[in-house]
Design a protein around this nucleic acid. Structure first.
Lengths: 214, 214
DNA sequence: CCGCATCCGGGGCGATACTG
DNA sequence: CAGTATCGCCCCGGATGCGG
């Protein structure tokens, strides 16, 4: 293992999780929970398959990831985070916070996007203004990737996939949807950049930050 | 610039500060303030000089580091963090927190150590139990590297170098000194592993956590 | 299809030498 | 003091193969 050779906690941490792709693998496992190899590949577009295998081995040896052979009829191997691995969540949240300003200019021409990457920004920015009212569900289709928001105990939770009976539907380019969530643009400006809102518009205004719910 | 090509804030952050040595350069600038090229080299043992020059250029272009030519009689170039760069402090603190457990087993055979690397662990663990008493100063010589602690407004601050009239002096191997600071060993066990304490032992007990001040 | 291993080319990285 | 220049090596990226 390549090491910095410094007796410093930051350097020791980077010795284990500072290699290329490593923290993004942890991101996927935090966002999606236990994953198959193929799920990880799908959530890490651009990674070479041998590199993913290498990193998973290293993370396993470092005590960050554990591998379990699921019994039949699943009959597949599942990769999950150990408790030590889940302790990386605050680190990744700080990295996300620092990186958020870089999202404002929108995706680069050949940037890829996966719906689960919205979860943390959304859950950090959105709140339920009416926690005592019956919960609402909002389907989101950002660049076509399906996910949905659910209100729960005053906060908002993001899940992958399609909700069965959503109260509202939000569809549009990612950077506009994210701009809405973070309050950098309001509903009118979002509509001007291609965001469509169907169903109960009030459900959306209920969870959006003040600056966006205009 | 090598990029992950993912429209995700974490990936965008790592695009800028995920390369090898980059976050350690930021660490040094956060710990020591504006630095000369040579100071950085000294604080980053093991880095290749061309790599340091490359990283500083990239960090400058990314808006994280700024370079200023100090006027005569100093006549040297100083590298400092921009405000955007200082916003990386929480990220590095989380990395440190995650890496702290890796310090318990002590330094590897050829690990290097610099006194400034104690500052964050010390300031996170130590407090002044008698904030109303007159302040105290404690000289620390961990593996020979000089630094000193000062009480101030209930907390403890770490500075590099030698204090002129310290109330106490603590000398010994780094991992034992750090173990003391973080409360993993007490003063007696530290003495058994080679830690010497001269002067006012009470000054030390005043700042150490409960578990260590036995 | 899933979970890799192997092969190979390019470039990031590490060490040393050298310079204005 | 603050870097450039040069040169290997190995990490990384991309493609393909392959056993279960």
């Amino acid at each position: 293992m390549r090491t910095y050779g410094q007796y410093c906690a930051v350097a020791k941490a980077l010795d284990l999780i500072g290699d290329r792709w490593t923290l993004l693998i942890v991101r996927e496992l935090l966002l999606r929970g236990p994953c198959r190899y193929t799920d990880l590949r799908n959530g890490l577009p651009g990674i070479a398959t041998n590199l993913l295998a290498d990193r998973l081995r290293e993370l396993e040896q470092a005590g960050v990831v554990s591998r379990e052979e699921a019994p039949p009829p699943v009959a597949t191997t599942l990769f999950s985070l150990t408790s030590r691995g889940e302790e990386l969540a605050p680190t990744l949240r700080e990295l996300l916070r620092w990186g958020m300003p870089l999202m404002q200019q929108g995706p680069a021409p050949d940037d890829v996007f996966r719906a689960q990457w919205m979860a943390w920004p959304a859950e950090m920015s959105l709140t339920d203004r009416e926690p005592d009212a019956p919960p609402v569900t909002i389907q989101v289709l950002a660049d076509g990737e399906p996910a949905y928001l659910q209100t729960s105990a005053g906060s908002v939770h993001v899940s992958l996939g399609r909700a069965d009976r959503p109260d509202a539907l939000l569809r549009g380019p990612v950077h506009a949807v994210l701009g809405l969530f973070t309050g950098q643009i309001d509903l009118d400006r979002a509509a001007a950049t291609g965001v469509e809102c169907e169903g109960d518009r009030g459900a959306l205004q209920r969870v959006l930050p003040d600056a966006a719910a205009a």
